[in-house]
Design a protein around this nucleic acid. Structure first.
Lengths: 217, 217
DNA sequence: GCGCAGCTCGGGAAATTTTCCCAACCAACC
DNA sequence: GGTTGGTTGGGAAAATTTCCCGAGCTGCGC
């Protein structure tokens, strides 16, 4: 690409751990043509940073406290449908992957991969392609073979997001604020999730979420 | 004790995410006097790597699949009581911190901190000091305001039993039946446990119970 | 285009639970 | 013998859960 803008690929890094971000930054900038133009540690800042910098690609960890990455992806894509978001997560559960792509992600790579996989994925999504690491593809493939894979498949994107935050320990009020919903809606989802999954207490819901990799410990 | 070591601080990195490890490595080696002499992605490999390299310090994420980091710390310290292990974790729960120091860790820093904090902590533990980041200290301090050690120590026999069953997913009705109590009493305990432990949702209660080893998964 | 299905979002209202306060019993302990 | 603390529950107001409902939207097939 002969310089219409500065040559190279501009990147917005989103992850809630500063050291981890710093690490990625070094790994990525080690590639000569990558430039990390901004960082963010939460969904709201990510959106703001995207608006001011309009990076070629957003590399984002979706398991963050508060409003999740899914929300940020949706916001970003709503603002600019040409935006490229590459999810960079610890989890490879099919439901999470689906939710991410459903929200508008262009790629999904887990942290279990070597840096080269991440780098290649970034180049792919910048070219407008979709990308996912082998383990993610494997999880998705496995899941599509079984008619009733995970319990999470019966849940929609919103339901999964709310389940994740519930299991993380957020209150109804916090979730409503995080997702810009009324408490009533969150309560309704909470109830709906319980009936859909057959769980009868919130404790069972937490265990389910942990089992499905929606949240850790 | 070979003085063969070239100058500088030799480090063993333990974390189950390759990209994350790669990132740390770059951040650390950016300091001129740090040398990452080995990496490991699980507890067993960490112990093996420690035996062969005898690094000045082990920087370890304790939330790994399989055998936990705690076990690795214990093994390492058992082999060499002069070994220095710095825990580098996502979590700052008091119970986890205590468990880590109990297992023989020399320091505890969360990933929420800036890289400089990690770097300073490494220098501290190499000097033989103990180190922990502010957020960890804060969590410990908060927790130690209660006259007891573990959060569980402030709970009575009945309260612990009911917490265990709640976290296991039992309903109020089931617990009442199990313990031959009225539902009202169980509800009162449920409430009391939440206020005593400071947890605000049942989900937080489950996580607390799991952290304290009251229940698994 | 048109209907259908499914997700999202919330209102309503009754049933239930949570939240706090309280009293009583019993055992241990100074 | 009084005090402390764990245990057991009642009561009543506040809040949540439960279920049902409708409306807007999107995608899909006919």
């Amino acid at each position: 690409m002969p310089a219409s803008k500065t040559s190279g690929i501009s990147i917005l890094l989103v992850d809630d751990h500063p050291v981890v971000r710093q690490g990625y930054r070094r790994v990525l900038e080690h590639q000569g043509d990558f430039r990390v133009v901004a960082e963010a540690d939460n969904a709201a800042d990510a959106y703001r940073a995207f608006k001011t910098h309009t990076p070629d690609v957003v590399v984002m960890d979706i398991s963050m406290p508060g409003a999740s990455g899914l929300e940020a992806i949706r916001n970003i894509r709503q603002r600019s449908s040409s935006a490229r978001v590459l999810v960079f997560s610890m989890h490879s559960e099919a439901a999470l992957v689906k939710a991410a792509f459903g929200a508008g992600a262009s790629g999904y790579v887990t942290k279990s991969n070597e840096p080269t996989v991440l780098i290649e994925a970034i180049r792919s999504v910048v070219r407008g392609e979709h990308a996912m690491s082998d383990d993610v593809a494997h999880a998705l493939a496995m899941e599509s073979l079984t008619p009733s894979g995970s319990v999470l498949d019966q849940l929609g994107e919103r339901e999964i997001e709310i389940l994740r935050q519930l299991a993380a320990g957020s209150t109804t009020e916090e979730i409503a604020a995080n997702l810009n919903l009324s408490m009533k809606t969150v309560q309704n989802y909470h109830y709906l999730i319980k009936t859909k999954t057959g769980m009868r207490t919130d404790a069972q819901l937490v265990r389910l979420a942990v089992e499905c990799g929606l949240t850790s410990l």
